[in-house]
């Protein structure tokens, strides 16, 4: 039951993009087309889950030596190394997968949502299973927001707007309305 709560909470109620404001750069940058949204979303889910699995023992190690204040440094370094490694491995072994996810991978290192998930896992003192569920749910929430928003955006592109609002301002205001609709989920938990 606890796992379902975490899942619903991260996907809908506390959506990482629309109510926690993490990964906005990727959200605004990649949501232009449905296809790239799917690719980016899949890459983010993958990296988030793996990052959650890897950072768990590392935090235990930091706890053992009583240097938990180094978690930011340790986590970001591990995530950066991991992303680079995955990129090299799938480039060599799985070219079709690399074609689908490859271009998004290097961009994920500096996506604050990934570091955010690992730090939330630590702050909430989740165990390993809860961490994985939390990371998976957050990734799915990110993908959902990206997909929904790419649909909204294609409608904006077709509509007539005042010159000053073209581009980013209109996108942000549309994001505000999508975020408003996600507030409807706030009673679920």
């Amino acid at each position: 039951m606890g796992y379902i709560l975490i899942l619903v909470g991260t996907v809908l109620v506390n959506n990482i993009v629309l109510s926690q404001f993490m990964g906005i750069c990727a959200f605004l940058g990649v949501s232009k087309q449905m296809k790239s949204s799917v690719g980016m979303g899949a890459a983010v889910i993958f990296v988030m889950v793996c990052a959650a699995v890897i950072t768990y023992p590392i935090y235990k190690l930091l706890e053992h030596f009583e240097i938990t204040y180094l978690k930011t440094v340790a986590f970001i370094l591990v995530i950066a190394m991991f992303v680079q490694m995955v990129e090299m491995i799938i480039k060599k072994l799985m070219p079709p997968l690399y074609k689908a996810l490859g271009i998004y991978l290097p961009l994920i290192t500096t996506n604050c949502a990934v570091l955010g998930v690992t730090i939330t896992n630590v702050d909430e003192s989740y165990n390993i299973a809860q961490s994985v569920v939390n990371a998976f749910g957050t990734g799915v929430g990110f993908t959902l927001a990206l997909l929904l928003f790419s649909g909204v955006r294609s409608r904006i592109n077709d509509s007539k707007l005042p010159e000053t609002f073209k581009g980013v301002p209109a996108t942000l205001i549309a994001a505000s309305i999508v975020s408003l609709s996600f507030m409807g989920f706030s009673g679920l938990i």
């Binding site: 750069c25 790239s36 500096t110 942000l172």
Partner: peptide, 29 residues
């Protein structure tokens, strides 16, 4: 969104900005 729109309006006659991630697929990096 509104603030950026106001800035766009005010900066209308200025040359286009150099660094813009608006049209950039790599904005996440």
């Amino acid at each position: 969104g509104c603030l950026i729109a106001v800035i766009n309006k005010l900066a209308k006659r200025k040359p286009p900005k150099e660094i813009s991630c608006e049209n950039c697929p790599n904005a996440a990096a």
